[in-house]
């Protein structure tokens, strides 16, 4: 555990909390892609299948449970409790276009051809592209509420910090995981355009509005 990895985990946790608080306090999930949230729930479910078989640390297990619980709580709020506020007309990304390629790639490129390993790899590939429905939704409506952009910034920072962590681990312990690193780079690159808009607009007090 290094400071970048901890920072990444905390940014991820912050993103999840921002999203839950936004939905809970405004009693609305307007502007949030339920499709992306489905993909995140699927990601954590596939990745943390080892929760009961592979104990790493109390920190590790607690965070896994928190991420899983938050992912499903978000789905509950969006699809059950505040269903009426869900903006499904703008959330039209086809999930199979991301799930099927991620599953196919996980079957071909993995560390070991076993169920738990292929599921872990699938989760890594799926997470890399899970934000696309959300970014697609923002580009479709042309804008995002500030709170939604804070959520996206925290979520994007998480994998960016993980990349720094992987560079650090490579030099300090000779550790590297090509699958996680390449997928993590793809994941972070997807946020670059958003990062640019966030820094040039939202941090200056303006609403995140895409250029017409």
């Amino acid at each position: 555990m290094n400071i970048f990895r901890l920072g990444g985990d905390l940014a991820h946790l912050l993103a999840i909390i921002i999203l839950l608080l936004k939905i809970w306090t405004t009693r609305s999930c307007a502007g949030i892609s339920g499709k992306s949230q489905i993909l995140f729930a699927l990601t954590f479910t596939a990745r943390y299948l080892d929760l009961f078989t592979n104990f790493v640390s109390v920190y590790n297990s607690v965070m896994k449970v928190v991420y899983l619980a938050a992912a499903y709580a978000t789905l509950y709020l969006m699809y059950v409790k505040f269903k009426a506020t869900y903006d499904h007309n703008h959330d039209t990304f086809r999930l199979e276009f991301l799930i099927l390629p991620a599953a196919g790639l996980a079957l071909i490129i993995n560390h070991e051809f076993s169920i738990i390993e292929v599921m872990w790899t699938f989760s890594i590939y799926l997470e890399a592209v899970a934000i696309l429905p959300q970014l697609f939704m923002v580009s479709k409506t042309g804008e995002a509420e500030s709170i939604t952009s804070h959520y996206l910034f925290a979520l994007g920072s998480y994998r960016a910090l993980y990349i720094v962590n992987w560079v650090y681990r490579y030099y300090s312990e000779g550790f590297y995981d090509m699958i996680a690193t390449l997928a993590g780079v793809v994941q972070t690159v997807l946020y670059c355009d958003f990062f640019y808009l966030y820094i040039t607009k939202v941090l200056k007090g303006k609403k995140l509005q895409l250029p017409a």
């Binding site: 985990d9 592979n54 640390s57 590790n60 070991e112 872990w120 550790f175 995981d177």
Partner: peptide, 10 residues
């Protein structure tokens, strides 16, 4: 060393 080690990450 390269594979599996990342399982300590989240």
């Amino acid at each position: 060393r390269a594979s599996h080690a990342s399982k300590d990450e989240l």
